[in-house]
Amino acid sequence: MDSLLQFFENPMVIKVAKLIMWILFIIIIIGLVRKTLKKRIDNISIRYKAQKGVEIIGYVLIIFLILMAITIDSLKDYTIIIGLFTAGITFTLQELILSIAGSFYIFFVRVYKPGDRIEINNIKGDVIDIDSIYTTIMEMGEWVSSDNYSGRIVKISNAFVFKGPIKNYSMDFPFVWDELNILITYGSDTELAKTILMNSATELLSDYTEKSKAKWEEMVEHYYIENATIEPTIAMSLTDNWIQLNVRYITDYKRRRNTKHTLFQHIEKAILKTNGKVNLASTTLQLLQIPPIDINLKK
């Protein structure tokens, strides 16, 4: 019993206990402040940033308390202990340290933010949360075609920002180029077909074209990049079976699938109104019936 009392009366034990109590107190305060912000702030984006700011401030306070609690009289001993401690932490928790460093890199360099559509580590989706260790993504693709959600939520370590490329569909330039191939038969009026495609693309995508021009001018001023053609363009190629007309256009990164669907519907209706001057092509196979044959066998 006496040895137990002596243990709890040890100044080092008292100091560690106080440190743990302060850390728990800060964690409780962080939780309470997050709940208060959730109730008081209606805007999702502002509420999310405020909650993350409170978390970061709390982590900084905890790290500061730990550093203040370390008191070593000898500078030599301090250097040795810190060196051994750093080496051990680096070896055993290198992935965790890299993830935490990645979270600071993401926030301060703005590699991506919640709401961005990214592709990282061969996983594509919308960022729905970023914490100190993981980035949470609503996955797209896999067994679902085009840019549709698969329904799975994927957590990716923040360390991946240092390990490979990050494809961001919405940062700085929230538009993407897409293509639509229209196949017409030989003998169709190609000039009329190209006019239909160009008019349809220009009419339906004029809003995207105007908005993307302003964004692209900002890109040219900010980055070392050449100017690009924002307006819809058409390229024609000949194949063994049909004439292929390729329409290249710009659209919002979140509406790529819907834009292609609407554009194709508009073009199809316009082609049907040409009364056969332009015909859509497809791979067909015609089976001919063999006429009856009389066979006489003679011995």
Rank of each mutant, 00 (worst) to 15 (best):
E218V: 07
E218D: 15
V220H: 07
V220Y: 09
E221K: 15
E221Q: 14
H222P: 00
Y223G: 08
Y223S: 08
Y224F: 08
Y224D: 15
I225L: 14
I225K: 10
I225D: 03
I225F: 10
E226V: 06
E226P: 01
N227S: 12
N227K: 15
A228T: 12
A228G: 00
A228Y: 10
A228N: 10
A228W: 08
T229R: 06
T229D: 11
T229V: 14
I230T: 04
I230E: 02
E231L: 08
P232T: 02
P232H: 02
T233S: 13
T233L: 02
T233G: 04
M236Y: 05
S237C: 04
L238D: 08
T239H: 08
T239S: 15
N241I: 11
N241W: 07
N241H: 09
N241K: 13
W242A: 14
W242P: 00
W242E: 13
W242N: 12
I243K: 07
I243V: 15
I243M: 11
Q244W: 00
L245H: 04
N246T: 15
N246W: 00
N246M: 10
V247L: 14
V247C: 05
R248V: 06
Y249N: 03
Y249S: 01
Y249H: 01
I250K: 02
T251C: 09
T251Q: 02
T251N: 03
